[in-house]
Design a protein around this nucleic acid. Structure first.
Length: 270
DNA sequence: CTTTAAACCTGCTGGC
DNA sequence: TGCCAGCAGGTTTAAA
């Protein structure tokens, strides 16, 4: 599944469904995890938390399930005894008496001791989470000027989870457009005002995506993208090649950046 | 160090 | 209708 906001929304839904309830059964598709099934039964899920695009499901017996959905994983919530139909393959099922959480198609599932999971290689390298409510625009502006990041092209930097965790490909296009910057620009070349604007949008856009939800899936999008309605999060440039720029009317163009698609307005971004 | 490309995971879409 | 190539919101690895 998707980018930081979608992962965090999934975590919220899952937590509301099962946190605090003792497990009646646990099932893993992976042979390496089979031995954990019996030991989880009777124990409660203490928390389900996103870390960038990874999800940690922590149990009260000292174990934590690490999961990363990559492009394909989808969490679903089922009523007790129910199994929602899916064309995808079921990988994890954690059942309480009231409801279950089911993970389909994830490629990366591991069991870690809760005390050690912060040493997971993926979590180790993550920068601050764009959806961490304590992260400030000032801190992001400072990070943009960190020697590790200031010389890198924004197009690559904005996808680097070591810079800011939770950023993703649609957020990248939207943030660069909102900040009026081309992906070739580097933090070192920006004016203080541009740094401030970029830092502000790096927080504002993921947060708006997380906080709002639309009604209809965006054209060309699949799965949990719920966008493109007046009351929800709306793509201004992403996936809008050839359409008029909402600010100036020029054609939105698509280009490759880091072998990922990126959309921009050549008149509004410089 | 940074950038780029390919590979991998799996599911869906569009074209023939 | 059916099959297949191509594409996708991500990440890792290797090469340049």
């Amino acid at each position: 599944m998707p980018e930081g906001p979608e992962i965090r929304r999934a975590a919220d839904r899952l937590a509301a469904a099962v946190v605090g309830l003792p497990l009646q059964s646990a099932w893993f598709a992976f042979p390496a995890l089979k031995s954990h099934e019996a030991s989880l039964v009777g124990h409660r899920i203490e928390a389900i938390t996103p870390h960038g695009k990874a999800l940690l499901t922590r149990f009260d017996n000292g174990w934590t399930v690490y999961s990363h959905n990559q492009l394909y994983g989808v969490w679903k919530i089922a009523a007790a005894g129910e199994r929602p139909g899916s064309t995808r393959s079921l990988r994890v099922a954690l059942d309480t008496g009231r409801s279950s959480i089911l993970l389909y198609s994830a490629s990366d599932i591991e069991m870690w001791r809760s005390d050690d999971v912060h040493r997971h290689p993926f979590l180790m390298k993550l920068g601050p989470d764009v959806l961490d409510p304590t992260l400030t625009a000032v801190a992001v502006a400072e990070r943009l000027q960190d020697p590790r990041f200031r010389g890198r092209a924004l197009g690559a930097l904005l996808l680097d989870q070591a810079f800011l965790a939770g950023m993703g490909n649609y957020l990248r296009s939207e943030v660069l457009f909102a900040a009026g910057l081309l992906p070739e620009r580097k933090p070192a070349d920006l004016t203080p005002a541009q740094i401030r604007a970029l830092a502000r949008e790096l927080l504002a856009i993921p947060r708006r995506s997380y906080a709002t939800r639309g009604i209809e899936p965006a054209k060309g999008m699949r799965g949990d993208y719920l966008t493109d309605t007046p009351e929800g999060f709306r793509f201004l440039v992403f996936d809008r090649e050839g359409q008029p720029c909402p600010q100036c009317g020029a054609r939105i163009v698509r280009q490759e950046s880091g072998s990922r698609r990126l959309y921009l307005c050549r008149r509004c971004q410089a």
